[in-house]
Design a protein around this nucleic acid. Structure first.
Length: 570
RNA sequence: CGGGAUGUAGCGCAGUCCGGUUAGCGCGCUGCGUUCGGGACGCAGAAGUCGGGAGUUCGAAUCUCCCCAUCCCGACCA
């Protein structure tokens, strides 16, 4: 491809709305342009990269035996009603009507649609196991699209769904996908951290996310040297063996006029947040519950929901709090009698001489000791693990990293096959319900994540596997004759099956080098004055410094060797 | 949805507080010339509903009100 005929609008300056590195570089290198919030156009260079990623995904999915489909983007409301998600998906799902008033969803995911086709086709245990997949656009009315292509309203997802006869089969399908995912991300040049995850609104049990460590990640990961790794929303932690060995103080009432929040309390009592028993009233399936956690810990609502076995959980409105505690919001606590069930976080037990609300306006208790001043009848892990917490497996302190989720695999169970009534006959002619797994990769997000992991101050440094071109040929000719000589190289490389972007523009050398570095094609070939005088062509890797000089007849071979080496390193 | 910020040429910005003739600057773009190995230079140009609407005023990018859009921080997720 000749640069002069291409559309790769590189920029020196970044549009002011791009903040994170990958987003800035993708715009600067001319890969994408914003259409509007959360919607992006892929320009030719960007689309090439996207396609390379999709090719890798496709190869590995096919290798794992998955079957590729192409599903409609518009899915009828009936399907969603059948699974029950028409009501539960909420405003995140785009809904549209046709001229007859028929309702559809712009698919945010395809469990229903895939389950629906598959159930029409399978009828016997002989048809299973089967894993189907597609790469297609998903639509989500995100609360806040962000970070360019990392969180957008419209994105390409590879979504796969497995159908098995039993748990054992599901485990095998799940593991096959797990392996495929590892391979895919590895081939894309991405270092991923698989972590235990929550299953979210999709429903199901076992689940793992593939995370790319990054400052712009939206997830917090807890990592332990023993190999335990989990998403913060799921991560467990172990309570330290012995609590602080302070001498128990007398329980006493303290007047605390207008002191409510943990920050205000910490200032008032002049002590750190971990001394407080934060008591929050929730409505679990409509019924009030008090959750008590140390003041410096965050309640993890997912954990709490699970601990309470509730399907709906929300913070109680003020009037409920007032009713339950007989005091304004800010003075709740477990010491004085209270009529609602109380659940304690596991770390509450270790608090000595704590401080908590007295269920009375402007009064707190100090010198509060669990066991003596209140009984812990029900405790569970209901706060988020954090840096330094002890690993649930080995007890060592864990560390925290931010990550971008690029893939997610989970065992769905029977949620869709049951609600949508999918059955096959077993050997004995008896109807059985298959069990499902589901596996997603955010393709655009993967592209952004690759940039996040491969750049320097000059621009992107694409891994060869996903680079838009193999070679960036910089021509530095001045006369028509010199241009013709460079063009010979271009033709020669193309004839050798090498994908080359040839910078044939009339511009200064520095300008062309800067663009080459920005775009980040792994191999740069320069034909300039040493070529015109002595026939020396220069090869430089984007990731390296040294320049190899070479004659024209061995150029193609050398480049192929370089490419093969890069491949072998992986 | 709550909190914060921004909106002036394709991009980056100044001007707005304190209203006043043809709205500036840099990059990019067009033409000519000189350059040519790390974002060259000179000269000449093209390009603007000042986010939109209403209002105040002799006069509005600038003041007032309403609306819209975008970005950042929180709850959703690939």
């Amino acid at each position: 491809m000749k640069f002069s005929r291409y559309m790769a609008p590189t920029l020196k300056e970044v549009p002011s709305d791009a903040v994170v590195t990958s987003h800035r570089l993708m715009i600067r290198a001319g890969l994408i342009r914003k259409e509007s919030a959360g919607m992006y156009c892929y320009l030719p260079l960007g689309f090439r990269v996207l396609r390379k990623i999709m090719d890798i995904v496709r190869e590995e999915m096919d290798r794992a035996g998955a079957l590729e489909f192409l599903m409609p983007e518009m899915t009828s409301a009936d399907l969603w009603k059948e699974s029950g998600r028409w009501d539960t998906m909420g405003p995140e799902m785009f809904r549209i009507k046709d001229r007859n008033g028929m309702e559809y969803a712009l698919a945010p995911t395809h469990e229903e649609a895939m389950t629906n086709v598959v159930r029409q086709i399978i009828s016997s245990y002989r048809d299973l196991p089967v894993t189907v997949y597609q790469m297609n656009t998903k639509f989500r009315d995100e609360i806040r699209p962000r970070f360019g292509v990392i969180r957008s309203k419209e994105f390409i997802m590879k979504d796969a769904y497995s159908f098995d006869l039993d748990d054992k089969g599901l485990e095998a399908s799940y593991q096959a996908m797990r392996q495929a995912y590892r391979k895919i991300f590895e081939r894309c040049g991405l270092e991923t951290i698989p972590v235990e995850a929550d299953t979210g609104s999709m429903g199901g049990s076992n689940s793992e996310e593939f995370m790319v460590a990054s400052e712009v990640g939206e997830e917090y990961l807890l990592l332990c040297s023993c190999g335990y790794r989990a998403n913060q929303e799921k991560a467990e932690y172990r309570r330290p063996e012995a609590g602080p060995s302070a001498k128990p103080e007398e329980l006493r009432r303290v007047d605390t006029p207008d002191v409510r929040t943990i920050d205000e309390l910490a200032a008032f009592f002049n002590c750190s947040g971990d001394r407080f028993l934060k008591s929050i009233i929730y409505l679990a399936d409509g019924k009030p519950v008090m959750a008590v956690v140390p003041g410096d810990r965050e309640i993890n609502e997912l954990k709490l929901k699970r601990a309470l076995k509730a399907s709906e959980l929300e913070l109680a409105p003020d009037f409920v709090v007032e009713e339950v505690t007989r005091a304004p919001v800010g003075f709740a606590g477990p010491v004085s009698d209270i009529s609602v069930p109380i659940i304690y976080d596991i770390s509450v037990k270790n608090i000595a001489n704590g401080i908590t609300g007295a269920n009375e306006q402007d009064v707190h208790y100090a010198g509060v000791n669990p066991g003596r001043d209140f009984a812990i009848n029900r405790e569970d892990d209901i706060t988020s693990a954090r840096e330094g917490d002890l690993c649930p497996h080995c007890g060592a302190p864990m560390s925290v990293k931010k990550g971008i989720e690029v893939g997610h695999i989970f065992k769905l169970g029977y949620k869709y096959t049951k609600s949508m009534n999918v059955t096959v006959l077993d050997e004995k002619g008896k109807s059985i319900t298959p069990i499902m797994g589901c596996y997603g990769i955010g393709v655009n997000r993967t592209m952004a994540a690759i940039v996040e992991q491969h750049y320097d101050e000059r621009g992107i440094m694409w891994p060869r596997s996903v680079a838009p071109f193999d070679v960036h040929l910089v021509g530095l000719g001045k006369s028509e004759e010199e241009y013709a000589k460079v063009e010979e190289i271009y033709i020669l490389l193309r004839e050798q099956g090498i994908d080359v972007l040839y910078d044939d523009r009339q511009a200064s050398p520095g300008f062309k080098f800067a663009d080459a570095d920005l775009i980040g094609i792994p191999v740069r070939v320069t034909a300039g004055k040493t070529y015109f005088s002595e026939g020396d062509i220069e090869i430089k890797l984007r990731s390296g410094k040294e320049i190899i000089k070479i004659k024209k007849d061995s150029l193609a071979m050398t480049i192929k060797d370089l490419m093969a080496q890069a491949e072998a390193k992986k």
